[in-house]
Simulated scan of single mutants.
Amino acid sequence: MTTEESDIRVYYRVALKLMALLGILALAYAMISGFLSEPRTSHVLTQSVDITSLAPGEMLEVEWSGRPVLVLRRDEGMAMADATFAERLYDPGSRFSRQPRAYRNAHRSAAPDLFVAFATGTDLGCRLDLVPPEIAAEQGWGGGFVDRCRGGRYDFAGRVHDGQAARRNLEVPDYRLHPDGRVILGETPASD
């Protein structure tokens, strides 16, 4: 190798190292400036949902924080269906679920007759449809929610059935029940 070839190799090595160093510095600058310019906490807005006219077996859907939320008033048939098909659930104890600590109970909610969750499945984020126990019985299950993309099934407490593409139960947002019959979305429930 000639001296000229050796000098060219040294030049390229130095140039590559400088370019790598500049790339790392640019990335660090972008990360630090992004960290400093954006607030660390976001303000969560609350929303009041009147459920006084929601009859047992009925569901309503609202938009909150840019996401659809479902509010279901469970009836006795729904509770019986959940108990009957509990052995078919992937995570019946909701160990891997996203939900407020106060709602880590069998019905995953503030009250046994109420269920509040984001109205999207947990695998592809598809919208959900409510399937009553009477219709689901014809299909060999207890009923609950079905996502519109792959047909993933969740019971009336939002717990995913075993053998589905989804592996997490429906996400339950922060909310609390107001004594006058409203659900206040965005408020952290009181822990027991």
Rank of each mutant, 00 (worst) to 15 (best):
A28L: 12
V160C: 06
E63C: 02
G144S: 13
A30Y: 04
T84K: 14
S109Q: 09
E187I: 13
G163R: 01
L89K: 04
G142D: 12
E5G: 11
L177K: 06
E38I: 12
R148H: 09
L16N: 14
E58I: 03
H43L: 15
L170A: 05
D180F: 01
R73C: 06
H161T: 02
P92E: 01
A26D: 11
L70G: 10
P132N: 05
R168Q: 09
F118V: 02
A83S: 10
Q139T: 08
V49H: 12
G140L: 02
T188S: 01
A190Y: 06
G140D: 00
M78V: 07
F145C: 10
E63N: 09
E87W: 14
K17C: 11
G121V: 02
D7M: 01
S53C: 01
A136I: 07
L124H: 07
G93Y: 03
T84S: 14
S94D: 15
R176H: 00
C126T: 07
L60W: 01
E58H: 10
H107Q: 07
L25M: 08
S37W: 10
Q99N: 01
L21S: 14
W141M: 01
T84G: 11
L16I: 10
A165L: 11
V10M: 14
D155V: 05
L124T: 12
I24A: 12
V10T: 13
Y90G: 04
V10P: 00
R74F: 01
A15P: 03
S6M: 09
A165R: 07
G121T: 07
D174S: 09
L18A: 13
Y11G: 11
G140S: 02
L25F: 09
V49K: 14
V10H: 12
V69H: 00
V172N: 11
S94C: 13
S6Y: 03
C126A: 15
D50P: 02
V69A: 06
L18W: 09
D7W: 00
E87H: 14
R74E: 08
C126Y: 02
D82I: 03
I8D: 11
A79Q: 14
R95G: 02
H178R: 11
R98D: 03
V116A: 01
S191Y: 13
E5T: 14
R98Q: 07
E171I: 08
A136T: 10
R73M: 06
L128D: 11
V131L: 00
S109R: 15
